[in-house]
Design a protein around this nucleic acid. Structure first.
Length: 177
DNA sequence: ACGATGATGAAC
DNA sequence: TTCATCATCGTA
């Protein structure tokens, strides 16, 4: 079984999509080669009320794709060095996205984009085959017991209520190499 | 514990 | 136009 995830998958509630992304495969096309990496860690940024979300202060040039269609890449630059890979979720007009923090063999969102050669060039592009970066369901079934929920990383500045939300999903089993 | 490194957005 | 901040990481 190998099915490319479409808008329909990403349009659902952000926390549900985040959970469902674990065990899916991020596929990167480089020239003729396609390399697939199982997703092992994600974080949800859910709606304008979410103080840790870029969308919390309203729409800006940077975050505007979060307000648009689901299944689109939201890629932004932080700390003068790293591109962060997110996929837009939820209905149009509702600002939400999921940060892909890790895949099998690569831990950390900055390392991930660096290793796969993902930059802002892909921002606002659809997560489909022709864009060279997409996500596939390869039939892996994930049980709730395999997943750990924790608070999100690097967002303590927003205060305890929102920084402590259990919006980070990660496999308990260590998939690092 | 801290510096690298530059875009972002809010204030002036 | 300035300036503090930042969904990080490598080195120490």
């Amino acid at each position: 079984m190998r099915k490319i995830l479409t808008k329909k998958f990403f349009e659902r509630a952000t926390l549900v999509v985040a959970y469902d992304l674990l065990g899916k495969f991020l596929v990167r096309k480089k020239g003729r080669k396609e390399i697939a990496y199982m997703v092992t860690e994600v974080e949800a940024y859910d709606g304008h009320k979410d103080k840790a979300s870029h969308a919390h202060r309203g729409e800006t040039p940077r975050n505007k794709v979060m307000f648009g269609e689901a299944g689109v890449w939201y890629i932004y630059f932080v700390y003068g060095m790293y591109d962060m890979l997110n996929v837009v979720t939820g209905p149009r007009g509702y600002p939400a996205a999921i940060l892909i923090r890790g895949v099998e063999g690569i831990r950390g969102p900055g390392r991930l984009t660096k290793k796969l050669g993902i930059t802002r060039r892909l921002n606002s592009k659809n997560a489909v085959r022709v864009s060279g970066l997409w996500i596939e369901d390869r039939g892996i079934k994930v049980r709730p017991k395999e997943i750990k929920k924790t608070s999100r990383v690097g967002v303590n500045y927003v205060g305890s209520v929102w920084s402590k939300k259990p919006y980070r999903f990660i496999f308990k089993k260590d998939y690092d190499h």
